[in-house]
């Protein structure tokens, strides 16, 4: 993929983001209008959000017009292909975000120590050049920053991290 192609694919992705932001701003502007006004003040709870969302909508329209000006016709046809190529190159990003999401959802169930150990050790093994010393180091680091951190917070700072249901 040439540099211009990559720039155009990025510009289309940004155009899509402007459209999403515009739709969100219009929806939330309407939602802000439905917030009841107060008899005790001139501006109600919905006034400030309405100003903000109106400004976002206006700015999004400007951004959309600006983006449409920059993108050539054939770029739209190539976009899906380019986006798929980017996603394949950055597959570790998706693994990281997926692992983080699973970790955060698992904390209330497994407790901080176990969930953190599994997350740190698992993600390190995925990211590392796999050699025996590295795996041993990863295990030690995972123990220190899961069980060790939990102990430090509970015993020294009396801040109790989630214990889980087990």
């Amino acid at each position: 993929m040439s540099k211009t192609q990559a720039q155009e694919a990025g510009e289309i992705a940004r155009l899509l983001s402007y459209v999403v932001i515009l739709l969100g701003a219009v929806g939330l502007f309407c939602a802000a209008g439905a917030i009841p006004a107060s008899r005790f003040e001139k501006l109600g709870a919905g006034a400030f959000p309405k100003i903000v969302f109106a400004a976002i909508a206006l700015m999004s329209i400007v951004a959309i017009i600006d983006a449409l000006r920059k993108i050539s016709g054939p770029a739209y046809g190539r976009f899906l292909c380019d986006a798929w190529g980017w996603a394949r190159r950055c597959y570790l990003v998706f693994i990281c975000l997926g692992a983080l999401s699973a970790y955060l959802l698992a904390i209330p169930v497994l407790g901080f120590s176990i969930a953190s150990f599994v997350f740190i050790f698992g993600l390190q093994v995925i990211l590392m050049p796999r050699r025996m010393p590295s795996i041993a180091l990863a295990a030690v680091v995972a123990v220190v920053f899961s069980f060790g951190l939990n102990w430090l917070f509970a015993e020294v700072f009396t801040v109790f991290l989630p214990r889980g249901v087990f």
Binding site: I107, P108, F112, S116, L127, M128, L149, L161, P162
Partner: peptide, 23 residues
């Protein structure tokens, strides 16, 4: 990087939780 990224992420999680003790 493979070592620091998961560790700092865990520190971020602790910081986020310790702020209000809210899951």
């Amino acid at each position: 990087k493979w070592l620091i990224v998961p560790v700092v992420m865990t520190c971020c999680v602790v910081g986020t939780f310790a702020l209000n003790n809210r899951v």
